[in-house]
Amino acid sequence: MSDLLLVIIGTALVNNVVLVKFLGLCPFMGVSNKLETAISMGFATTFVLTLAAISSWTLETFVLEPFDLTYLRIISFILVIAAVVQFTEMFIKKTSPSLYQLLGIFLPLITTNCAVLGVALLSVQEKSGFFDSAVYGFGSSVGFTLVMVLFAGLRERLALADVPRSFAGAPIGFIVASILSLAFMGFSGLPSH
């Protein structure tokens, strides 16, 4: 149990996908203008990332390794993640309209998010079991959601600030992101898996 907690702390805070590994910067900068969208995006990513970690672990263990095909890892992961997410989207659309409302258009968007593929690859490299991989994916996406929500809150306030024209918009966004990244360095050295 404490092992799992350490994995979650390690992936969400110490090795945060966005602020430490610099993965998934496109949704981080692109979909963080509004708090509500950022939260939805976070939930959708949590869902997809966990699913991607599970499916890529399954693929790696039962197909790629036994048949010595690990050089096909990247392309097969992309394919599997895209397929799984697409199927999930169709499934959710039919079975749970309210959940579809929440995750909505984000699901297909996330398929091409580099954080998803990155985390899937990293979790496979960890060479851990099925459950650990799932927790690894889940922890990473919790970290993603956390910084997404924090950043969206900051940007909503930035929109009201009297930022000099040459810094307004993306530049100040990146500066704030870098300060956040700096603040997250405080977590470095925490016990993690």
């Binding site: 924090l150 809150g153 909503e156 300060i179 956040l180 603040a183 405080g186 050295g189 925490l190 016990p191």
Partner: peptide
Amino acid sequence: NWGGYPEGMAFAVLLMNAATPL
């Protein structure tokens, strides 16, 4: 107690500053 730096005042304040809008 558990981090890499002996004193965390500045980090703690920065992190909570980030949470202030929320």
